[in-house]
């Protein structure tokens, strides 16, 4: 009799198992539901295997003949990412503070949050297409696209950091007769600085990746080159450009994650 009680105690209660089973059921049902809409045809990978092999062979060996040009455009892509991120950081500081519940009252932070939501909801590619129309083809359109989208993301991340601060030091500053701005500069910003720097560097990393694609709609940088050579079926050159992008993005990722570790 004792052993029977013990085994019952050792397995999870039946309700927990049921919930687990249900969760798996929902996951599989969702996958099955999306199958036809996404036109999943695994057989195509096998039947068209030979074609893909020929296609892949066209990429090798990569053609680095125009490497100077590719590098120049890659550097411009970096420039787009740098300015897009820098402008976003500058704007995300006030917007992030205005989004924070412990800084601004609801009638300010709710509208500002919705505004930031909309900046975030639209992909930077869409913004890039719009800005190409507004300010013409070229890197500046890319900068503006990254700037608007990244402001939305950073403002949200910054405000979450502000909402998680320790309120006691801020009260210490308030007790000296400081005004709201002084409370923010001396009580809040020193507390959130490490996180803010870390988030900004992370967004810079992502923006280098994004800057390589905003070019495809004409917003400057390596993306423009990539788009032209893909359309012209220059696959060896495409391979060279892709390798340059991979190398640059990897270097930036490694450098920035090293740098971020210093601030946490």
């Amino acid at each position: 009799m004792n052993t029977a009680i013990d085994t019952a105690r050792l397995s999870p209660p039946p309700r927990q198992s049921l919930v687990k089973l249900l969760a798996w059921g929902v996951i599989f049902a969702t996958l099955a539901w999306s199958w036809s809409g996404a036109e999943i045809r695994p057989m195509a990978l096998i039947t068209d295997g030979a074609n893909m092999g020929t296609f892949l062979a066209d990429f090798f060996p990569p053609n680095f003949h125009d490497w100077r040009y590719y590098l120049e455009e890659m550097v411009i892509t970096l420039h787009i990412a740098i300015w897009g991120t820098a402008l976003a950081v500058v704007c995300a500081v006030p917007f992030g503070l205005l989004c924070a519940e412990n800084v601004a009252p609801a009638w300010i932070n709710q509208p500002v949050r919705r505004m930031m939501d909309s900046c975030r909801a639209i992909n930077e590619m869409v913004f890039a297409m719009l800005f190409v129309v507004a300010v013409g083809l070229g890197p500046f359109a890319g900068v503006l696209a990254l700037f608007v989208h990244t402001t939305g993301i950073l403002a949200k991340l910054f405000s979450e950091a502000v909402e998680a601060i320790d309120p006691r030091p801020v009260e210490g500053i308030r007790a000296t007769g400081a005004n709201l701005l002084e409370e923010i500069v001396y009580g809040i910003i020193p507390q959130v600085m490490p996180l803010w720097i870390s988030y900004s560097l992370y967004r810079f990393e992502s923006n280098v990746r994004s800057a390589t694609v905003v070019g495809m709609v004409g917003a400057g940088g390596i993306g423009v080159v990539l788009w032209e050579i893909i359309r012209g079926f220059y696959f060896a050159e495409t391979c060279a450009v892709m390798l340059i992008i991979i190398a640059t993005v990897s270097i930036i990722d490694i450098a920035s994650s090293r740098l971020r570790k210093l601030f946490i």
């Binding site: 006691r168 000296t176 007769g177 001396y186 009580g187 490490p194």
Partner: peptide, 27 residues
């Protein structure tokens, strides 16, 4: 004109002691 001393000190931990003390002059 009122100095307040808290149980948990309420200093800003990441700022130098000097800056914390200087915040007394903000008013």
């Amino acid at each position: 004109r009122i100095g307040f001393v808290f149980q948990q000190f309420n200093l800003v931990g990441r700022l130098p002691v000097m800056t914390n003390v200087l915040t007394g002059s903000l008013g």
